[in-house]
């Protein structure tokens, strides 16, 4: 309404050219068409867009009119009654009652784009606005099973169902849904894999890290006490290794991370990697002082490496990079 009034208020003045008059006329028609759309007067809007296009067919605004005409034609099923129902539901505050009404209406919709868009809207709104993944899952499944669903819409439906499964705390089901549909390159797949890993992998890594650190610390405490030993443990060479180990995660955090305040994650990376390097060094010092054989020292070194890997995995998981690395690996040809 405001734009229509503004259009009329800035109408043609004396002396404007015929082309200018036509441009003004076209603009008024477009504003009226947009108003008609807001009131769900789809047929009237279509007529006005056609008039607007005919006034100056080569103009920029004619292109806008053509785009809206194409959109209306693609949503005209059932003489626009389904579109009106969907538009009304979208304009309303989302509640279970509003969505239930739309669900009932959808059952009577003819085959076509509006029915598919309505089911996608139901799934999305149940999932994101009403936090009801059970109903979201049902809507997405209904969409995926439609006979006229396009391949893109099917992918959207399966991905939505996978996200709903994740919201239900079922990452394995989420992965299975995407695997069955062959959608292993969707970002949701990487997300589900990362979540599934987090269920088992993260506790395992924490346990490994804790066990290693505790064992080496006790070991070092028994056999490598004294300032001189500590000085050797933190020799420049070992600190250089630590710095190298920390360079990558710190660079990632400082240069690219912005998922959440990076300070605590920086502390995590520094703490985890630093602890492993320190306890590894102490353990090695203890082993040397004890006169361990090369074989036993190799076992200690292997355990140290495993702990480093566990710390690195935890770091990339908690910084959100595990999801990205899985996704990147999936996207590589």
């Amino acid at each position: 309404m405001v734009l229509a009034l503004a259009t009329l208020a800035s109408g043609p003045g004396a002396g404007t050219s015929a082309a200018g008059d036509r441009a003004e006329e076209q603009q008024v028609l477009l504003s009226r068409a947009a108003e008609a759309e807001l009131g769900h007067g789809w047929v009237a809007a279509g007529a006005l867009y056609r008039q607007a296009e005919a006034v100056l067919p080569e103009s920029r605004l004619a292109r806008r009119a053509r785009a809206r005409l194409e959109w209306l034609a693609a949503h005209a099923e059932g003489d626009f009654a389904p579109l009106t129902a969907l538009a009304s539901a979208m304009a309303a505050e989302p509640t279970h009652a509003v969505l239930a009404d739309l669900e009932r209406a959808v059952e009577g919709f003819p085959d076509g784009r509006v029915r598919r868009e309505a089911l996608a809207f139901l799934g999305d709104t149940y999932l994101r606005r009403l936090s009801d993944p059970v109903r979201a899952l049902a809507a997405y499944r209904r969409l995926a099973e439609l006979s006229d669903v396009t391949e893109g819409e099917r992918q959207l439906a399966v991905s939505g169902a996978a996200l709903a499964a994740l919201a239900l705390g079922e990452p394995a089901r989420s992965v299975a849904l995407l695997d069955e549909a062959g959608l292993t390159r969707r970002p949701e797949h990487a997300l589900a894999l990362a979540e599934r890993w987090a269920e088992v992998g993260a506790p395992f890594c924490y346990a490994l890290l804790g066990l290693f650190c505790a064992t080496t610390f006790v070991f070092a405490g028994r056999y490598a006490l004294g300032r001189a030993a500590l000085r050797r443990a933190f020799a420049p060479g070992r600190l250089a290794v630590a710095a190298y180990a920390l360079a990558a995660p710190v660079a990632l955090l400082l240069l690219y991370d912005d998922d959440s305040g990076y300070e605590w994650r920086l502390a995590l990376v520094l703490g985890a990697a630093g602890l492993v390097v320190a306890t590894s060094a102490l353990g090695a010092e203890g082993a040397l002082r004890r006169g361990w054989s090369a074989r036993r020292r190799a076992v200690l070194g292997a355990a140290s490496s495993l702990a480093v890997c566990a710390a690195a995995l935890l770091a990339v998981h908690h910084t959100g990079w595990l999801f990205r690395l899985i996704k990147a690996a999936g996207e590589r040809p």
Binding site: Y244, G301, S305, V308, A312
Partner: peptide, 20 residues
């Protein structure tokens, strides 16, 4: 040995840092 294994363990991330 320990140092070498540590180095190997983080080599992948180190390469990322260089690239970044």
């Amino acid at each position: 040995m320990n140092r070498i294994m540590t180095l190997v363990g983080v080599a992948g991330l180190g390469l990322v840092a260089v690239a970044v």
